[in-house]
Amino acid sequence: MSIHIDAPIEQPAVGAGPAPRRGRLSGGSAIELFGIPILVVVGFLLYVWWRQTATLDSIEASSLDWSEVRLEVWQHLKLTVVASLVVVAIAVPLGVLLTRPRLRFLAPAVVGVANAGQAAPSIGLIVLLFMWLSGWSGFWVAILALALYGILPVLRNTITGLQGVDPTLVEAGRGLGYSGGSVLLRVELPLALPVIMAGIRTSLVLVVGTAALATFINAGGMGGMITAGITLYRYPVMVAGAVLIALLALLVEWVGRVLELLVRPKGI
C-alpha cells in the first residue's frame, strides 16, 4: 500500500488529492473549470427570475431589496479580498523565511502551532476576537479572524513547495552567479508557485465561507440575509441568502482555479 495521504488536519480542498495524475486539464478539472461558471450564472438567473416573480410580503421584500443585497455582496467580497491579501502578504514571506537554512529548524514547530490553531472552531475565534478587541471596528476584527483562519494552507503549501524544489537547481542557480535573493525569485519561487497557488485557493474558499459568519459581529457580509431570515422567520430570505452565498463561494473558488492556471510558469 504505497498511497499515504498525509492529512492530520488537512483542509477541505487542499490541492492534495491525487495531484500527480492531473495533467494540464484532466476530465475532472475540465468539468470544474467550465461547469462552475455555468452553474453560477444559471443559479443567479434563476434567483433573479424568482425574485422578480415571487410574491413577497413587505419584510421579505425589504430584506431582499436589490440595494441591500448589493451592499451585502460588496461587504462580503471586501472581507474576502482584504483578508486574502493579508494572508498572502504574511504567509508567503513567512514560508520563505522558514525554509531558509538558518530558520529551517523552526518550520515544524510553526506548522504544528498553525495546525492546532486550525482546530479552533471559526465561530469561536470570531466571537472571542470581537470581545477582546472591543475597540476595533467589526470589519477589522473580521479581517483578523479570517486572516488567522486562512493563513495555514498558504503557509503550509509555501513551505512544502519550496522544500520540494530540487536542490541541484538551486545549486545551478548559484553556479550561474545568482545571489541568494535572485535564486529565490528566479528559481525557487517560480518552481514552487503551483503548490503555493493551490494553498491560496484553499485559503480563499475557507475565507469566503467563514466571512458568512462576520455578520454575527456586525461586520456585514451575506450572512446577514441568513440571520435575518432566521430571526424574522422568513424562509424565502434565508434560502435566498444561502443560495447567493453558495454561488459567490463557488465563483470565488473558480477565480482561484483560473488564477492557478494563469500564473503557472510555462516550463512546469
Binding site: P12, A13, G28, I31, E32, G35, I36, L39, V205, V208, G209, T210, A212, L213, G223, I226, G229, I230, Y235, M238, V239, G241, A242, V243, I245, A246, A249, L250, E253
Partner: peptide
C-alpha cells in the same frame, strides 16, 4: 467535481438551505 464544489459551499449557507 461534486465533492470539491460541496466543500466550497459555506456551512452557514447549507444550514440556511436546510432549515
Amino acid at each position: 467535481a461534486v465533492s470539491a464544489a460541496g466543500l466550497t459551499i459555506p456551512s452557514f449557507a447549507l444550514i440556511g438551505l436546510l432549515l
